[in-house]
Design a protein around this nucleic acid. Structure first.
Lengths: 336, 336
DNA sequence: TTGAAAGCGCTAACAG
DNA sequence: CTGTTAGCGCTTTCAA
């Protein structure tokens, strides 16, 4: 059967006709399925290449019932955490030929629902939920969808597959670094206690100190806000008393920035008198402190990549162990 | 004709059968096309709703030759500019029912090509290119594609449709603000001259000064790097000579941060002795300076939204005026 | 006002 | 080894 193709786009019919075979054969040749003589296969492929044939993914998805497309939901439009995660997801998935629908939902449940419905209508093979806090869920329930869901850097149901940075391990590396530098009077200046990461990092701090046989007094953990200002205030408080610390582990880089500035204002030398370690490796902050900040990197891009790959496995029907996957952080040593 | 649907998904056949009409009628009823009795239309719609019918967008796209999907290409995986632009695009397009494919391409031409091909295979209706610098193109040529392309915050061919912030206007607002505050000895501390935004902001600075009848000496424009350090250095240089400025317009917020810190270290009061204005409204910087920074916001989200809407218009066959669309910036007045 | 039928471009049984 | 055929789920003439 012949059929006339008026559109500029070359279809598998064109290839089949030009190669003198049926579309079925052409399809098999191009997908490396079925069996046929190597000669035929090669010829069809050559013809396809010459014609510049590109299969219409829509048509293919329709029959295969697989769109090679996933949805990415995020509630974070300004934060610095999401972009690396998204980039990692995108990078990790393109290798599998899967594309990513980006959906920014803010904290708007209605908008989130619209996006999820749109994704489902477009037959995404799965969904990745990502956000800015590991203890706050997205404003939409994804737990009873017809497609698999993977969570990254956002709160998730217990039985879900979730990827987060290993805050404990990161904090431990930071403290170990301080200890290895000969520091013994170490304090932890961190953010609001309502954040789970604050609790995790703080308890890892305490445990690491204890297992190194170092004292950790009640006053060694100072909770405040995620701000430079709080770094300043904390230093002021610490140095207004006796017994100044010689090592400070900060809950994030902004606090560390405030701490370092405050120390300099007091002409306390970093790292000679006091060593400082941050958390996040937010380069814009960490590289601008004087001296540059030693800090913990959460490997967010890698986290995104793994989330993407886990989703692909789920979509392929492979099993992925449920629960919280804690991915290792990495200490980045600079001058502080 | 009847047909059995074993999949969980309800199709238009199910709706048609349940409503006792043909699929053609069902389709028309649901898409508000064709003519039929209001009663029939309502009944079909009600049945569809009861059954939870959601049309398969893939199948629809195949016949309509329109996927309601666009590709978003970016070379910026860490910067702060891209995320708001992307969020704006996503937000502006979901209203039209169009979804966005996110593609992070770094500076990798091969990767970029892979992504563009994948998007085309998936029959995107159009492509938006975005990046971190208005004077650097993405590592892939998009000028001869079969679908329309819109550029936002990245370098583009002359005849393209491109959206960028109006740097001149933004700079002018900043300088006008300084002048309105009674400042007369104003300098501009900015980034590397190789950036087009540096040139634009600098020339707008000079022009605004001149039209206000204020002197702008050769030494009034100081180019350096986009860093706090440079802000410090510039202040040092300025205050090592005579004739200190009473107003400083900085090329970005980081420089402004350095400037403000340096001024405080010299016990020069901001804004009493010197007013400072930044550029970018990067909240994490602008809200942390002491006092908080008055700065120029580029309205990036709105820029993204407009880019998305322009693309939709192009896809719909409407015309969009070619060339550079400069979108207004907005001065955010804080304490500096 | 409604429906039958022909596709959109591709894949996958099943025959030959 | 290759081709015929029947869909995937939806839209859209065209005829009734």
């Amino acid at each position: 059967m012949s059929r006339i193709n008026l559109s500029e786009r070359v279809t598998i019919y064109d290839v089949a006709a030009a190669a003198g075979v049926s579309t079925a054969t052409a399809s098999k040749a191009l997908n490396d399925t079925g069996r046929m003589s190597a000669e035929t296969r090669d010829r069809i492929r050559r013809v396809a290449r010459e014609l510049g044939f590109r299969p219409n993914a829509l048509a293919r998805s329709l029959t295969r019932k697989r769109s090679f497309t996933v949805g990415l939901l995020t509630d974070d439009t300004y934060g610095r955490f999401t972009l690396p995660v998204m980039a990692g997801i995108s990078e990790g998935l393109i290798d599998h030929g899967v594309s990513v629908f980006l959906c920014a939902v803010e904290d708007n449940p209605a908008l989130a629902k619209v996006h999820v419905d749109a994704m489902l209508d477009k037959q995404v093979d799965g969904i990745i939920a990502t956000g800015k806090r590991i203890d706050k869920p997205l404003p939409v329930d994804l737990s009873h969808l017809s497609v698999p869901v993977v969570y990254a850097l956002t709160a998730a149901p217990l039985e879900a597959v979730t990827f987060v940075p290993d805050d404990r391990q990161g904090a431990q590396e930071a403290v170990d670094h301080l200890i290895a530098a000969g520091r013994t009077k170490i304090v932890h200046i961190t953010g609001p206690g309502s954040f789970r990461v604050v609790q995790e990092r703080a308890s890892a701090f305490a445990e690491t100190m204890q297992s190194a046989g170092l004292p950790v007094s009640q006053a060694a953990i100072l909770q405040g806000t995620w701000s430079e200002r709080w770094g300043h205030e904390a230093v002021e408080a610490l140095w207004s008393g006796e017994n100044h610390p010689d090592g400070i582990f900060c809950g994030n880089d902004q606090i560390a920035r405030g701490v370092i500035d405050a120390l300099r204002e007091r002409t306390i030398e970093v790292p000679t008198d006091v060593s400082v370690v941050g958390f996040d490796n937010w380069e814009i902050v960490a590289e601008q402190t004087r001296p540059p900040l030693t800090t913990v990197d959460m490997n967010l891009k890698e986290l995104g990549r793994q989330a993407g790959q886990a989703l692909v496995r789920l979509v392929n029907g492979e099993t992925v162990e449920q629960g919280l996957w804690k991915l290792p952080c990495m200490l980045v040593v600079r001058g502080s």
